[in-house]
Design a protein around this nucleic acid. Structure first.
Lengths: 217, 217
DNA sequence: TAGATTGTTAATCGATTAACAATC
DNA sequence: TAGATTGTTAATCGATTAACAATC
């Protein structure tokens, strides 16, 4: 599967469509869905739904819409979610543990989640060698060997800001392909490694703009 | 302060600029910074930096740049971060606790953080009445009274997906102005309430697109 | 067949970048 | 003054929406 350069704006809507289709598959009855209805559920215009999907092929039928089960499978393939991906996590603090739990719960509930958390990492000797939710915790010196051994594709970074670039570098050198970064820093990475940032402080500060306090005159 | 309709694309860069200025204020020496340098540090083009700031006033000096301390203060005012905002959190599970810890640590380290976590909420009777990181946990029936009493402006939602809309409705009815939603659902809210979504699953699935597994032929 | 809805092209809208006169 | 850099306008780029022929 090689589609040359599809905009990130398109890619970030695909998981949204996939979620809607998963929900629809649960609900009995309907076999197919129109771009109109899919758009409403995903919060996107119908024309945009059709255009987004059209980048990857012709999945619909005129006069009918998209077959739910079929489109869902196709979207899974497009997103590389049709077979297991191996995910690591570094920084077994409270956020790291919370994400680990969340992830394990999700995996248990949804057999086709296909993002498998296989290794945790931390620099704290007290944590190394223990398990969290059944997943072993390794030291940072094992990053290289574990990335190879577990075939890690993606790493979730939940270490403090000042350590984030350093651990990122180790994973990049070990050949990781994707980073989900929760540390409040702009990570430097080569173009071959895709970085997605999630920054709670930034989101809260943005929200603050829209929340003018009532002036107490 | 009333600026009619400034794009969200602009607003989401302001906290980024603010962070860079905070870092620069720590580093001794430099008093001012050019749009060029600020742009590099924030990962944004210099023209865009100038244009973003120009929406709110004239903060720079030709030939010199922007005075760091002054621009930082102005950005704080623009983002409503110049005085304390009261934040609540509902869903005291592992993610809720992790965010609470993170928040308290941030508040302790940075006196001008100004986003104060003042109330937690959960439906579990075993949790109600306890404290997490010093912050009291209330039942959902106390949402209305606590929003009033604590003057809550923003609520962070970390409850399971199927409960998210219900608790959101309660806070909306109580008069909350902003919601930071971690539940994997599209919340319905009136235009008067600003909703920001953070969805780890969605981010991971997006990342999966960019991480094609090596084909084992 | 008649009605509905796709895939796609053209039009619109919005956001970023380039350029430069003003000016510190 | 000469050099640097702002604030702002015009040009470009990219993303969304509207429209409609094709067709199920």
């Amino acid at each position: 599967m090689r589609w040359n350069k599809i905009s990130d704006a398109v890619i970030r809507r695909l998981p949204l469509y996939l979620r809607v289709l998963d929900e629809l598959a649960e609900e009995s009855g309907t076999e197919s869905i129109s771009s109109q209805e899919l758009g409403v559920r995903a919060g996107v215009g119908p024309a945009l739904v059709r255009k987004d999907l059209a980048w990857f092929g012709e999945f619909g039928k005129q006069g009918v819409g998209y077959e739910i089960a079929y489109l869902r499978d196709e979207l899974r393939k497009i997103l590389n979610l049709d077979s297991k991906l191996s995910v690591g996590l570094v920084g077994v603090g409270s956020l790291g543990v919370a994400l680990t739990r969340y992830h394990q719960k999700r995996s248990a509930e949804d057999a086709s989640f296909n993002l498998e958390l296989t290794a945790l990492f931390d620099s704290d000797p007290a944590k190394i060698g223990t398990r969290v939710e059944g997943i072993p915790v390794y030291g940072l010196e094992d990053i290289l060997s574990q990335v190879k051994e577990k075939g890690l594709n993606i790493v979730i970074i939940t270490v403090p800001a000042q350590e984030a670039q350093d651990v990122a570098n180790r994973f990049i050198q070990a050949g990781i392909q994707g980073i989900l970064n929760f540390a409040p820093v702009k990570l430097k990475a080569p173009d071959t490694v895709h970085v997605v940032n999630t920054d709670v402080s930034l989101e809260l500060q943005r929200l603050a703009y829209y929340v003018p306090k009532a002036k107490t005159n």
